[in-house]
């Protein structure tokens, strides 16, 4: 079977500002890959390229073996910034049901299976009690959980999460990583995070992005990679980076 994600020599710039340079990335089925890197390093841009939301200047992007425009409906995506119109008259329940949208068509309403899936997804993120609330009435962390539920509802082949744990308290964060841990036996997960403690415990592979992607298809990054990415001596960042991630020489 084809790779879940296959980027070859991808270059992206906004106007004259280069954001991604010569990025190659392969993610296979059931990989759990975390991407770390400084702010403005291009992490969110990379995820949007993978989903075909941004067209690269150069290079090829395949998602599930095809053009991401065709295959992205099989991916679940939780963006970093909630792009939604939050005064919109919509309940938590309707937001999560909306997750089924990609597999419907005109005239076809949501059915019993969709409602069951939405119920399960809300249960997983522990938001069932809030299902009749209007989405704008929730706290930041609660909204984030609702959007995670929306991305899970169709049982995607790949889950793409852009700093999902921001705004979630530490107990919920642990539950959240446990959830990802369960999911990874079935699907591929791509997670952008600053949460170094999660890396050592749950994640299988780590890449570091600052315009260029430093990745060795493993959990290990050399101090050289990190220095290149963060552009500061590794001691300054190593305190946050678990030793199992840093390669010992």
């Amino acid at each position: 079977m084809a790779e879940v994600i296959d980027l070859k020599d991808v270059w992206v710039s906004y106007g004259n500002t280069p954001v991604l340079e010569a990025v190659d990335l392969v993610v296979e089925d059931r990989d759990f890959l975390a991407i770390i890197g400084p702010n403005g390093g291009g992490k969110s841009t990379l995820l949007k390229v993978i989903l075909g939301l941004i067209k690269p200047d150069r290079g090829s992007v395949r998602l599930l073996g095809d053009d991401p425009k065709k295959t992205r409906k099989y991916a679940g995506y939780v963006p970093q910034y909630i792009s939604s119109n939050l005064d919109f008259p919509i309940s938590v329940w309707e937001v999560v049901l909306m997750g089924c949208l990609g597999h419907k068509g005109p005239f076809r309403g949501y059915n019993e299976d969709d409602r069951k899936a939405a119920y399960e997804a809300l249960k997983v993120v522990d938001m069932l009690d809030y299902r009749d609330r209007q989405i704008g009435e929730l706290s930041g962390g609660q909204k984030q959980r609702v959007f995670i539920a929306r991305s899970l509802v169709t049982r995607p082949r790949l889950l793409i999460l852009d700093e999902p744990s921001t705004g979630i308290d530490s107990k919920r964060q642990r539950e959240f990583y446990e959830l990802l841990n369960r999911l990874k036996s079935e699907i591929a997960i791509l997670l952008v995070t600053h949460d170094m403690s999660a890396l050592s415990v749950y994640v299988d592979k780590v890449a570091c992005l600052n315009r260029r992607l430093h990745y060795h298809n493993s959990k290990e990054l050399s101090p050289k990679d990190l220095e290149a990415a963060y552009q500061c001596p590794v001691e300054l960042i190593a305190h946050g980076v678990p030793h199992r991630v840093l390669k010992v020489h």
Partner: peptide
């Protein structure tokens, strides 16, 4: 509107999501 009710809803609520969902 009857035919595209869900689609219009996603368009007005969250265009990026609607795009990823293949709309």
């Amino acid at each position: 509107v009857y035919a595209y009710y869900k689609e219009f809803m996603s368009l007005c609520f969250d265009e990026e999501f609607a795009t990823v969902a293949g709309i």
